[in-house]
Nucleic acid binder design. Structure first.
Lengths: 212, 212
DNA sequence: GGACATAAGCTAACGCCCGTAAGTTCACGA
DNA sequence: TCGTGAACTTACGGGCGTTAGCTTATGTCC
């Protein structure tokens, strides 16, 4: 499905003071390109502009360069992921175990529903190096911290409640758990058809959280 | 380090009947580009040709198109990975546990030593879709089967030897173990600096193999 | 209500690299 | 000598990121 780019109606110009709106539209256009199934190579400065219905140079007042668009997308989607995890945790049935599964499954679901977004969030291709771009290392380090903290929290609750064999290193355990989730999420996002049993996610969670 | 491409001596032309040599040289050039730290975008048909010291069109007698080069690289590296795992398994001390750790660590080491190669092997970007390329689904499905089989084997040996709590689904357990390894290997290959404890690999293996 | 400052976005163009097609040269080996 | 395999040169068309300068709508102020 190639959802024609036929933007007749040359796109209503934003009102004064609302120029910032375009920034969000640009990010949305980039996300849309990803969701159409193209990989990150499909997200060029020009293709984003076409999708947003604007001329390519009109992006520059909002983003310093092409990688900056990607960074903005990743930041936005990281926030979305964090929100999804939070919501799943809040809406879960009582009990640390249920919360853990809810949060972990919400993570896996995010990756399944938005494979291409997940790919650029954790696939790390969009910024080959900090040189030549306006992106700083601090930008990159800050990504995903909040979501991970949530995972540490729910895992810790399991240990406290005595339903998981906690080690002396909760943080390390959470990293291991996340790596397992990431392995599955990433592989699903990348491959056409994932082999293996349907409940492999639950297996990973049980094993890596050391549930009793 | 940009290892100059100054190929004076216009490259000795291959003797008759040795045209096939160039094929390997092209693959080697592509791998070299990856190892220089550039991501897969650095591996274009032209850049490969430059690296190999030949003219770009000279590639066509050997590869139908650019993705075919990538496929050849992936196939070659998958074989290399399989060989490395085999060797690690053979050279391991006696006992299923030692073999399991040897094989798993060999996997992780491969990814650490050759992060960019690992990325294209399992990152799945180099073939946006089977359309428009000469690559078939069968090509893709066949990748990595042999290496995975080896993992199933060593894990099965652990269960048989009674040092791991086996479930009724050995294959599924091996998938879960591999996903954990992959999560770590991939993240290390992608990120500048991997957070978390140094022994996170061993933790993953112990937990996912259900070692007693 | 009309002039005008300015924000918002456009057009045109530059230089680069890419994949690929067509036709050509070179040197080995029979 | 000469056929032919190996690799080359040249060229086309297209997409890219980015720069410079222009147009137009919008809201304000007299």
């Amino acid at each position: 499905m190639v959802t024609a780019v036929t933007n007749t109606e040359p796109r209503r110009r934003n009102r004064r003071g609302e120029g910032g709106k375009l920034r969000d539209e640009i990010i949305a256009a980039a996300v849309a390109l990803l969701d159409e199934g193209g990989d990150e190579r499909a997200v060029t400065l020009r293709s984003v502009a076409r999708k947003a219905g604007i001329a390519a140079p009109s992006i520059y007042p909002h983003f310093a360069d092409q990688p900056s668009i990607m960074l903005a997308v990743v930041q936005q989607e990281m926030d979305a992921l964090t929100a999804a995890l939070k919501e799943a945790g809040d809406n879960a049935p009582q009990g640390a175990r249920a919360r853990l599964f809810a949060v972990c499954n919400a993570y896996l679901d995010f990756a399944r529903v938005h494979p291409q977004r997940y790919r650029i969030m954790f696939g790390g291709l969009w910024t080959p190096s900090t040189e030549d771009t306006s992106i700083t290392d601090a930008d990159l380090d800050a990504l995903g911290v909040e979501a991970f903290t949530l995972l540490v929290e729910v895992l810790g609750a399991c240990v406290e409640e005595g339903i998981a064999h906690g080690s002396d290193d909760l943080y390390g355990d959470a990293v291991a758990l996340w790596l397992g989730l990431h392995g599955l999420a990433h592989q699903r996002a990348v491959v056409r058809k994932m082999p293996g049993p349907a409940d492999v996610g639950d297996r990973l969670i049980r094993a890596l959280a050391h549930l009793k």
